[in-house]
Design a binder for these strands. Structure first.
Lengths: 157, 157
DNA sequence: AATATAAAAGTCAAAGAAAGACTAAACACG
DNA sequence: CGTGTTTAGTCTTTCTTTGACTTTTATATT
């Protein structure tokens, strides 16, 4: 066996492979099962189940809390993940953002109403912050939106 | 259903869904049915059936007491306009924002996908700005989004 | 009618349960 | 070495559950 994180990664993946495209797990229970610190689970999730690896993670705290790992098997996964990485990046202007949103419509990933929603929330008008941070904020919002669209069907964060 | 409160919430909602827009229930009876402390019912009502979430709760103590849960009517064209004016205002927390978005879903103004989109774009996570301006920015974005939806027209499908 | 009793529901605070964030140490590897 | 990855530990935050105590109301008793 390689390192512990790989073992945990494999364990989670084996759970997902059994038909479903998403599983729910208990952080403490899992940590106990592998005799490690609970935060190790977070580490594995962050490094092995990130968006560009094709996964989304949702969770909930408190009594009855859980961590849900979702395998993204959308056809557009690569397309959108690629978009996030290469076209959006750390900052983006309103002009560029609108262009990308337009492409999403053409590609059939979003409809007209969703286009409206997205455009309105990343418009210069809505983002009433200093110019220096506006493009950074817009990029962050767009990334978050696209990620949310990818795991649509799950619960909430 | 993972946790007791969710189960109770579902139970109450299923009662309401059966046609009526309001139901009456007995706190102790309900608590006994779910084998929990009576005050747990209050907790569920407070967290799941708040005004923000589109419900009103009335009650009466003493012999023959009751708890009445009323689903607030939301049809009417200026529902959203009213929301913008009275419930969002100049600033809004993530918690309040999510509640309102949930209400939009229940009222049939937006669908699950649009909910995801809206929630993601006003999440604390997406709005990476100093805490002082975060709630103001969130309110601005929400207002812009809702306005955009109004212009687009109600028919999502 | 006045009072006592019992039957509700309300409030609040404490305890418990779970995940998140952050930090620091240990390890691997060029 | 030095740098990046892994592991562990601790503290914080969020959400749930319970219990003790209070307040209100209807009903029975005197």
């Amino acid at each position: 066996m390689s390192v512990l994180s790989d073992t945990i990664e494999g364990f989670i993946k084996s759970l997902i492979m059994e038909g479903q495209k998403e599983i729910e797990l208990q952080r403490n229970e899992l940590a106990h099962h592998f005799s490690c610190a609970p935060s190790q689970i977070n580490y594995v999730l962050a490094t092995r189940f990130s968006l560009d690896k094709g996964y989304a993670v949702q969770s909930r705290r408190g009594g009855g809390g859980y961590i849900r790992v979702i395998r993204l098997e959308t056809d557009g996964e690569d397309f959108i993940a690629g978009l996030i990485r290469s076209r959006i990046g750390e900052r983006i202007t309103q002009h560029e953002a609108y262009a990308i949103i337009g492409r999403l419509v053409e590609a059939g990933f979003i409809n007209e109403r969703e286009k409206c929603l997205m455009k309105s929330s990343v418009s210069d008008n809505a983002l009433s912050v200093p110019a220096v941070v506006k493009d950074v904020l817009r990029a962050k919002i767009m990334r978050t939106q696209l990620t949310a669209l990818l795991c649509e069907g799950g619960g909430h964060e």
